[in-house]
């Protein structure tokens, strides 16, 4: 089940020609998801700070 199905790391990257597509998709998706988490978290903190000094 867990046999590494690529000859070496280089092959893992290129995936005989298809690597470029696979990697762009994964990278873009990771960036989008991580990015949205960060944006929302930052907005939340900004909002909380605004509330705190508003309520003092």
């Amino acid at each position: 089940m867990f046999n590494f199905s690529f000859t070496d790391f280089h092959d893992f990257l290129t995936m005989d020609g298809h690597g470029i597509y696979v990697w762009t998709v994964y990278l873009v998706t990771f960036a989008l998801i991580a990015g949205s988490f960060l944006i929302v978290r930052r907005k939340l903190n900004v909002f909380k700070r605004k509330l705190e000094n508003a309520s003092e």
Partner: peptide, 17 residues
């Protein structure tokens, strides 16, 4: 999926998407 799943017969590696 990326590293260990075997190659697909028809589509080669692009199916990993």
């Amino acid at each position: 999926g990326l590293a260990f799943a075997p190659e697909d017969a028809i589509q080669g590696n692009s199916y990993r998407i």
